[in-house]
Nucleic acid binder design. Structure first.
Lengths: 121, 121, 121, 121
DNA sequence: GTGGTCTAGACCACT
DNA sequence: GTGGTCTAGACCACG
């Protein structure tokens, strides 16, 4: 996991994105325990409160499950997971689409570019 | 044109991107005069020197042509234009691809998402 | 019996309330012996002196009868019992009434809510 | 508005309850602006961050509407308001019911006590 | 050791 | 002046 932040969005939101990514990539698996607030804060060189807020929000979303004093685990609820995956897909796609449009690039052409990159791998 | 900057990259580079976008979108047309450094600086609420640097770099790339004391115009050189277009395409595609991969999303699926968005328009 | 205390009132008063509740619910019956100060203190994870004070006060009220070295029993005096019952009823009702009023809820409506809950049981 | 807190629940939750109460009592009216975070914090002798959290949560519930840098107002959405009113009614009723039951008092009798208090007013 | 809450004080963007 | 975010450091309850 790469901990690097930009100044254009709240850090706690960027942490949320990073964690969601780790889950979707399968780096953190459903039912698995994630590192403690303090560990993450140390790794990210960020105040524990900031991590705390990020994880609380993810809990509210149902992505993380609080085990009280036993830490937090990734949800095993398939509904929540696919919901999140879908949200992120559309959100990301919309972001990219806007960037392409801003550069006057047709979305069909953009899609082809991505396909070509997919084949090159 | 929307002038808004984030703190994670030098402002002059962000201005370059904005101008390139305006050219590619056809907002600025080949051979056309672009606003003066001062006008742009005022509009962007930025120090004129910053705009100056951005435009100089674009000149070096051949995108802008200096007309001495008569301001700057967009190049009419097709080679330069298509070069820039291609650079931006691949750069943007690479960026998006990385984001999708970070979220564990297959590039082929990402391409489909963009296609779907293209059709919805 | 659930032993849990809040920080907003003296613990000995909270113990008194708990004991009174146990009597009124019929958990402790008139004439019956109640557990020793030490037993209660252990169960409640509280200093024996605190329990001692609570029980002394209840003795003063006539709810508990000291049997000297033989422990304490619940009073069999019907007058005392009904007196206590009535005190608690009005006190509790007043407390609830204030809360409802604080939330802008009419007492008649509140009474109906309680009735509905009574029927649901 | 009386600002007094007990140690048995988070202060920010108690603030939420107080604000909700003020709304339901009609002390704050729909569409009306509420005092700023800093004003409330001063009045309640509490850290601004604590008030901030309470108001943010109420915003999330839809009770408060953020007007950006123009402060916050009470929602005018009837649905949200009646929803909140109902939640509080049932919650409060449940709390009272438990207390009465703990004291071995029948809920029907409790309802009568409240009715009597209603008539006395 | 865990999460959760609170305080104190700072900085930012917006208008 | 407003809300929003972040840091630093402290305390608590729970096992």
């Amino acid at each position: 996991m790469v901990w690097k932040f930009t100044g254009d969005r709240p850090v706690y939101q960027q942490i949320m994105t990073l964690v969601r990514g780790a889950v979707l990539r399968g780096e953190y698996r459903p039912g698995e325990k994630i590192p403690s607030v303090r560990e993450l804060a140390t790794a990210a060189k960020v105040n524990p409160n900031t991590v705390q807020r990020a994880l609380s929000e993810l809990e509210r979303e149902g992505v993380l499950i609080s085990c009280g004093t036993m830490g937090r685990t990734i949800t095993q609820d398939e509904t929540v997971m696919s919901q999140m995956r879908q949200n992120i897909e559309t959100e990301l796609a919309a972001q990219c689409a806007e960037q392409f449009r801003n550069m006057g690039i047709d979305l069909k052409q953009a899609a082809e570019l991505l396909l070509r990159m997919a084949e090159e791998e």
